[in-house]
Amino acid sequence: MTTPSGTRPPLVSHVSVGVSDVARAGAFFDAVMAPLGARRIMEHAVGIGYGRSFPEFWAARPHDGGPSACGNGTHICFNADGPDAVAAFHAAGLAAGGTDDGAPGPRPEYAPGYYAAFLRDPDGNKVEAMCWIAPSAAS
């Protein structure tokens, strides 16, 4: 299957995380998405879709009406253009009510040249921004 533009679609269409307060989640994700070149693409009463041109990531209240809960061991990783964008993602998230779950820096234990930062959103969902740097710069 191909998209209308003739390209193969990505393996993952979109990802959603459950949130308890859409407005609070919106403030957090507005802040962390901007350094990654993403923005609000779509909004509904129950959630907000973010992306660069398509809503690839959703922060939404659970469909079943139950309380939101983050998954232990689950996280979403966003591609960043470079270390400065990773750092801006992390700083923006902290300023918007998130908590640190791993400061910006090289992660040679993941792979040579892997550079990332981790945050928890106000509902406890774990999000990451990563980029690749020259392996020699990662040491």
Score class of each variant (00 low, 15 high):
R24T: 15
T74E: 00
P104I: 11
H63F: 09
V12D: 05
S139M: 12
H90T: 01
A85K: 13
D81S: 15
E128R: 07
D123F: 08
G82R: 10
T7A: 07
H75W: 00
P83D: 02
A91N: 12
P35G: 07
V46M: 15
D123W: 10
D64I: 04
E128S: 02
S139A: 15
F28Q: 02
G93A: 10
H75C: 00
V46E: 13
P106W: 02
A87D: 10
F54L: 00
Y114Q: 10
A96M: 05
F28E: 02
R39A: 15
S5F: 01
M130C: 15
F28M: 03
A59E: 02
H90M: 04
A129N: 04
A91K: 13
V127C: 11
E128A: 13
P83C: 05
T99I: 15
E109G: 03
I41W: 07
P35M: 02
E128V: 07
M1L: 09
W58K: 03
S5D: 13
P135A: 14
S136F: 05
D21Q: 01
W132T: 11
G26F: 02
A34G: 03
S13R: 13
A25E: 06
W132I: 09
V17N: 05
L11R: 07
S68R: 00
Y110V: 15
R52L: 05
G105I: 12
G18A: 12
L11H: 03
F29M: 05
G93Y: 07
G71F: 00
D81Y: 08
P9R: 00
W132E: 10
N72F: 01
Y115W: 11
R61E: 13
S139W: 08
A69K: 11
H75E: 02
P10F: 06
S13I: 04
E56D: 08
A80H: 10
S5V: 04
A27M: 00
F89T: 01
H63A: 12
C77H: 01
G47D: 11
Y114N: 01
P104A: 09
A31H: 05
S136H: 13
N125Y: 01
